[in-house]
Amino acid sequence: MDFLELLNFYVIPGIVIGSIYALGAVGITLIFAILRYAHLAHGDLATLGAFVALAVVSGLGVSPLAALPVAIVATAAVAVGIDKVFYEHLRERPKIVTVMASLGIALMIRSVVQVFWGVDTQTYVRGIVRPEDYFGLRIRDREIYTVLAMLLLVGALQVFLTRSKWGKAMRAMSDNPNLALLSGIDNKKVVVLTWVIAGGLCAAAGFFLGLNTELKSLMGWSMLLPVFAAAILGGVGRVEGAVLGGLIVGVAEELSVLWIPSEYKAGMAFVILLFMLLVRPTGLLRGKVL
């Protein structure tokens, strides 16, 4: 196998799926940094985002990319709503209670998706899209959109976190919650902001997974493990770490097919997760909260 083939069939698809994992992992890491629990409904929230986009595409007849902003806003609103209705009441309880509640939310969201859209596989656009040739590199337009959108969204988030008053307040709340409260930072606003961002990124992850593969009601749930592996690999609490972790997990999954049967591809995330937890649980870029 030559080098171009390696890039075309393994590395490029790895980077694309890795960008999707990165979008999910950034949300996981933000929620962990501010609220201090693992959010197990994240995958199914991504499924919801993907199907909301599908509803817009088939309902209004617009292109998938035009439906993305609607899916982002709707999913962010649902995430804030779930927090208000369910998680908020559990804030003072041990965190494991919220973790288990989020598992219940995951099942609820999946059921809602199945009631509205059924359990069959669906796509945004019918037919086969052939990749374009760039000096021997074979890349589809949707793959370029995926990676660009990830870089754009995460870049915007980084600017928000380092430059704006409320972005800094989010970092302060993650860094030292007591001192943030003593400084008069409104905890409730920070929590809403966290859910808006995590929910929006989650919808983007689900959307691009649906755009590059297909939509089904279990699509997000099966993404949960690699997304958690990515967040832990990069260092929980670090946005740039989640991106790095996502890309590594994505590429590792694709490359693993060279040595193991492709049905076991999903196991790579588990291997990485296990390895990191044993060797360096703080992640590649030393995590802030674990």
Binding site: K168, A172, D175, L179, I185
Partner: peptide, 13 residues
Amino acid sequence: IFREMSIHENLEM
């Protein structure tokens, strides 16, 4: 203090 933030950001908070 906020350990992961700069001196300036600590004051800003």
